[in-house]
Amino acid sequence: MNEMKPHILVVDGMALLFRSFFATAHSGQFFPNANNVPTNGVQGFARHTMSAISIFQPTHLAVCWDMGSKTFRNELFADYKAHRPAPAPELVPQFDMAREVSEALGWKSYGIPNMEADDLIGSLIKTWNGKARLTVVSGDKDLLQLLKPDVSIALTKKGYTQYEEYNADRFIEEYGITPAQFVDMKAFTGDSSDGYPGVKGIGPKTALKLIQQYGSVDGVLAAKEELAAGVRKKIEADEEMLMLSRELAEIHCELTLDDPLAHLEIPEFTEETAKRMEQQGYSLIARQGFPVSPF
């Protein structure tokens, strides 16, 4: 019975940190602390997570982090995310601060060197599959491949409170393929934001048709002789990149993240917590968690 299962909110800490940083940085609002270190991204991340807790009403929480810009995918493909600009100097100190604040608030945090936050999210879903209901909060559509009957993905839409929420049925209806096939689709189309090309000359429409007809990259390759000459030629010219793109697109779900559920409990935000946040220069977090007067 679904309602008896624990409900784990899994937060893509990196996505919320970046989003919060850019929401205020463009107007020059960095909210420096007593040491003149910017805190806008950190405070925004924490407030966003607190809002998500009140919206989705989870029983438990896990926050996932990237640990540095290089991962095993850079070893597979040197250009992976290589074209992305370096983070703004005002954001750099906030990576460690955000993880520290997350832990100071008693939120269970996960970060493993060489792995992306996506891989931690995927591994948590695999760990708790069947034992808990999971809601993932992120801005990253790549995570849609992880949808399952008890998993929903809430993509950030506007401000702290608006989300585009996907379950497996909505995904199938909108995309015309299963969540697992999303990886095969991206193998053909590539991903310009992650910097891998897929198969040159094959766009989303052709990719979708191929996946709907043959089920997967392997299915398409096995039926190569049936394909239109032009499509076959493009695939043959880029077959190695097709296989590599599939490997880059797939979220790695094999990490061991088997902490007892009690470690993921959400502690109450007390007056004491608010005081501690205030002392550390995080007055916006203090106010959101323990408002002095109604907003």
Rank of each mutant, 00 (worst) to 15 (best):
F95H: 03
D12R: 08
H48N: 13
A228L: 11
S51F: 11
N167S: 04
G159R: 11
G198L: 06
S51Y: 12
F45I: 01
Q212G: 05
E240S: 14
A286S: 11
L105S: 10
K209V: 12
V217K: 01
A15I: 02
I211P: 08
L144V: 04
H252D: 15
V217C: 03
M4G: 14
Y110K: 11
R232P: 02
N2L: 14
L105C: 08
K108L: 08
P93F: 08
T256Y: 05
V92H: 07
P113F: 02
T273D: 12
E103P: 00
F72A: 09
G106C: 03
E164Q: 13
V137S: 05
G130Q: 06
L61K: 08
G289K: 07
V37T: 15
R276C: 00
H83M: 05
L124N: 10
L261Q: 04
K141S: 15
P197A: 10
S216D: 09
F182H: 12
L210R: 06
F182K: 03
L244A: 03
F18G: 12
A228K: 15
S293T: 15
H48T: 14
I177G: 08
G139E: 04
P291G: 04
A237N: 13
N35D: 15
P291R: 04
E240M: 02
A86W: 00
R287N: 13
S193I: 12
Y110E: 09
A15G: 13
L264V: 04
P294I: 06
L61W: 05
E272R: 13
D218S: 13
K126F: 00
P113E: 12
L242Q: 09
K81G: 07
A104F: 11
Y196K: 10
A52R: 03
F182L: 11
A154N: 03
V199C: 04
K224W: 00
K108S: 07
M243L: 15
V199F: 11
V136E: 09
K108V: 00
V292W: 10
L124I: 14
M115R: 13
K148I: 00
G281C: 08
M97S: 07
G195A: 07
Q213C: 02
L155H: 09
M1W: 06
S54F: 03
R47D: 00
G215V: 11
F22L: 10
N33L: 10
E173S: 14
A222I: 01
V101K: 06
V217N: 02
P32K: 09
G198C: 08
A52F: 07
S54P: 00
P32I: 04
P113K: 14
P179E: 11
G13D: 04
F56K: 03
T178A: 09
V217P: 01
Q213V: 03
D66I: 01
